[in-house]
C-alpha cells in the first residue's frame, strides 16, 4: 500500500478533492482518476510536450508533476479551453486551418499556445515556433499549427467568423 495524501484543487474551474497516491503523476491522476483523457501521454519524461497542462495559468508538463503538488492550484486541461459547442478561438483556428492531423500532440499544443496568446496577443511566427519548441508533432504538421495560431490571433482580435463550423 503506497502512501496517500489528500489534495484539493480546481480542475477546469471545478473544485476537486481526492486522496491520491503520492507517487501518482498529475497526468495519470487527470486521465485515470478524474477521467479527463484529453491530456495525452507521449514520452513520460518531459520531452514531447503532449501532456502539457496549465497550472495557475502557466504551462507545465503533467508527467513531471506529481498530483500531490497541485494541491491548492488551478489546473486547466485541454477540456477546460472550450467545449464541443463553443470552441476557443485557438481551437476553432486549429480546426479551420487543419492544425491537427492525428491529434496526439494537440492538447499540448493548445495549452502551450493558450499561454502564449494570453501573454503575447500579437506574436510573430518565429515567436510561435519558439513557444512550441518543447512540443513534438510526429505528423510534422507544424506549418498548419503555426498558421492556425496566427489565425487565432486574428479571431481573438477581430472576432470569430460566423461561418465557423459547429462540432456536433
Amino acid at each position: 500500500m503506497s502512501e496517500t495524501w489528500t489534495i484539493k484543487c480546481l480542475i477546469n474551474e471545478k473544485p476537486v478533492e481526492r486522496e491520491v497516491s503520492v507517487r501518482l503523476t498529475l497526468a495519470d491522476f487527470l486521465r485515470h482518476e478524474v477521467g479527463l483523457t484529453g491530456t495525452h501521454l507521449g514520452c513520460e519524461h518531459g520531452v514531447c510536450g503532449a501532456c502539457t497542462v496549465l497550472l495557475d495559468g502557466r504551462s507545465a508538463r503533467s508527467c513531471l508533476t506529481l498530483a500531490v503538488q497541485v494541491d491548492g492550484m488551478n489546473v486547466t486541461t485541454v477540456e477546460g479551453l472550450g467545449d464541443k459547442t463553443r470552441l476557443s478561438p485557438l481551437q476553432q483556428a486549429f480546426m479551420d486551418e487543419h492544425g491537427l492531423q492525428c491529434g496526439f500532440c494537440t492538447p499540448g499544443m493548445l495549452t502551450t499556445l493558450t499561454e502564449l496568446l494570453a501573454n503575447n496577443p500579437d506574436p510573430s511566427e518565429s515567436e510561435v515556433r519558439l513557444a512550441i519548441s518543447g512540443n513534438i508533432c510526429r505528423c510534422t504538421g507544424y506549418e498548419n499549427i503555426v498558421k492556425a495560431t496566427m489565425t487565432a490571433v486574428r479571431y481573438i482580435r477581430d472576432g470569430m467568423p460566423e461561418s465557423s463550423e459547429v462540432v456536433d
Partner: peptide, 9 residues
C-alpha cells in the same frame, strides 16, 4: 534553457 513549460517550473 529547456522550453517554456520546463522554465515555468
Amino acid at each position: 534553457v529547456g522550453h517554456v513549460q520546463t522554465r515555468n517550473r
